[in-house]
Simulated assay, not measured.
Amino acid sequence: METRVTDWVVERLRAAGCVFAEEEAGLLRTRAAEGADLEELVRLRAAGRPLEHVVGWAEFCGLRMAVGEGAFVPRRRTEFLVSEAVAVARPGAVVLDLCCGVGALGAAVAAAVPGAELHAADIDPVALEYARVNVAPYGGRVHEGDLYGALPAGLRGRVSLLVANAPYVPTGSLGLLPAEAREYEPRTALDGGPDGLDVQRRLAAGAPDWLAPGGHLLIETSGRQSPSTASAMTAAGLAVRAVSSEEWGATVVVGTRAVD
């Protein structure tokens, strides 16, 4: 009689409700092979901690982005924003990732745009520790502060691509998020105010002063919120279009500053 060999890691993860237990077990074992304690890794994951926080990285646009406790995990749907940004980019573009979190968005754009000058900014010092690691291969510079207030004056009027995955969950809907997000990611990376658009409006209002002529502002939003996101950009004087992808389940609103 053939004896079934039980993988204790997979069994523990399945019991905890991990849908992709086999795949996750492989990632945890890879992390353990790098010197971490496998039993502790499994315990943390089974307790509900995001897999990316446990292993210390997230895959994004085919790149490994450093991430960890207390930081927002880059979402795969945001890869759609990267593709839209790269489609309008030119070599040597000045790329600014605002509300950058761990800097995955800006790093992925810079990786695909030859000679890009990359800047990333966020108000969260914990996230910026990871952002420094992620933008370093592209010569990226990190700035700490509240939106445009974090930026050096020399960037004003020079930005070719301003990309942002700003928080856009309405405050009243935060309780509907998965437990991994509610319990382990910073509220500042999720809470977009009463209608979810507080930060997006500030991004749109300030963008014309920082965009170069012909420069683009790209903001991830939801399909339901996209008309309001577009209205905020229109009010700021930008030419606006919205694009969506069923494949990625994502919506991006693009605002372009007129060429003087």
Rank of each mutant, 00 (worst) to 15 (best):
R4G: 06
T6H: 05
V9C: 05
E11A: 07
L13H: 07
R14K: 15
R14A: 15
A15G: 10
A15N: 00
G17D: 12
F20T: 08
A21Q: 08
A21M: 02
E23D: 08
L27Y: 10
R29K: 06
R29L: 06
T30R: 12
T30N: 02
T30D: 08
R31W: 04
R31S: 02
G35L: 01
G35W: 06
A36C: 10
A36L: 12
L38I: 00
E40H: 09
R45Q: 06
R45I: 08
R49E: 11
V55I: 12
G56Y: 12
W57I: 00
W57R: 10
A58K: 13
A58N: 03
E59H: 04
E59W: 11
C61Q: 08
R64N: 10
V67E: 06
G68Y: 05
E69P: 05
G70R: 05
A71I: 07
V73S: 13
V73E: 14
F80C: 03
V82H: 13
E84R: 15
E84V: 10
V86H: 01
V88H: 09
A89L: 02
G92A: 11
G92I: 12
V94K: 04
V94Q: 03
V94T: 13
V95S: 14
L96I: 03
D97I: 00
C100V: 07
G101K: 01
G101R: 03
G106C: 07
A111P: 06
V113S: 12
A120T: 01
A121I: 02
P125W: 01
L128I: 12
Y138N: 12
Y138D: 14
G139K: 05
V142P: 01
G145R: 04
P152E: 13
G154K: 03
R158K: 15
L161Y: 10
L162P: 07
L162N: 10
T171V: 11
G172V: 14
L174H: 03
L174K: 07
L176D: 15
L176A: 15
L177N: 03
A179Q: 14
E180W: 11
A181L: 10
A181I: 09
A181E: 12
A181C: 05
T188D: 10
L190I: 10
L190G: 02
G192C: 11
P194V: 10
D195M: 08
D195N: 08
Q200R: 11
Q200C: 11
R202I: 00
R202S: 01
A204D: 04
G206H: 05
D209T: 06
D209E: 14
W210A: 09
H216T: 11
H216E: 13
L218V: 07
S222D: 07
S222F: 03
R224H: 15
P227S: 13
S228K: 06
T229R: 09
A232K: 12
A235T: 02
A239E: 15
R241I: 01
V243W: 09
V243Y: 13
S245T: 04
E246I: 00
W248S: 02
G249N: 09
T251L: 02
V252P: 13
V254S: 09
G255M: 13
V259L: 15
D260L: 10
